[in-house]
Amino acid sequence: MSVKGSKPKFAMYWASSCGGCEIAVLNTGLKILDVDAAFDVAFWPVAMDAKYKDVEALPDGAITLTLFNGGIRNDENAAMAKLLRRKSQILVAFGSCATEGCIPGLANLSPAREVFDTAYGTVTTENPKGVRPQPETRVPEGVLHIPVFSPTVRTLEQVVPVDYSMPGCPPESHQIAMVIDLVIQALQGKAQLPPKGATIGAGASTVCDECPRQRNVKKITKFVRIQELESVDPNLCLLEQGIPCNGPAIRNGCGALCPRAGAQCIGCYGPAEGVVDNGARLITAFASVVDSNDPVEIERILDGIPDPAGQFYRFNLAGSLLHASRAVR
């Protein structure tokens, strides 16, 4: 990394996430050298050693660009979101966890107690005494503190204002490279940043729009799981073959990678432009392919989607209109 000097500062932080976003950034290949050439890396736990207190010591607004990935699962995540908001000029909600909760957000279907019972009390965990981690634990050396678990996973924007959102689980590396280029050019006065609040590094339309599969008049009498089919037509729309593809509601920008490879879109780029709630949009899309006017028959066909909440909100529950199951309340 370059010597700390007068270059603009860059930070990247992970809250409740898997680390895939960091890999995607590193996957930009040589582009990472451009980041190093254009920025001083002030804080990036995965790449370099720095402490929270180093960030606290910076003047407010000292970091030019912060990519924040991960959702807000506990009070440490929330505190870091607030700290980095204060220290950053441009705060980007980076990746699906930060923008919409992503897979960790599916925990919003269960009360915190169940989340802990699953994590610390099922057969895969050796925990005979039924120990649960506590916010405070007394040990001979003193008191240990661990972050306090929040009732639900929240998106970054549900906790602090963000300047831009960059969707994807993870964002595609070529999209990240484009965004990095844009920010560098903007810093050099050669380009303009998009208006605040914009979604960056993604398309404005749907995955279907980028999908080469052929659509006819969609009507099906059965939803199937892809592995149940003997063969999948390589050219025909998956939804028309009864495979629950989320393409109709999901933002493009990935290049329709999954449907091109023969797998249904599971929705990692979040709701397309203008889609308020991607579950609602998918309900409309899926309902429109069901080939029946008879309530009993319709219900039979819909049995083919055994987990509608998981199907429609796999990446988006925390960011959806309902945010969490009623069981959480």
Binding site: A112, R113, G130, V131, R132, Q134, P135, V148, P151
Partner: peptide, 11 residues
């Protein structure tokens, strides 16, 4: 919520 979720034994 946290305290409730983790009601159980302390280490």
């Amino acid at each position: 919520t946290h305290a409730y979720a983790m009601a159980g034994q302390e280490v």
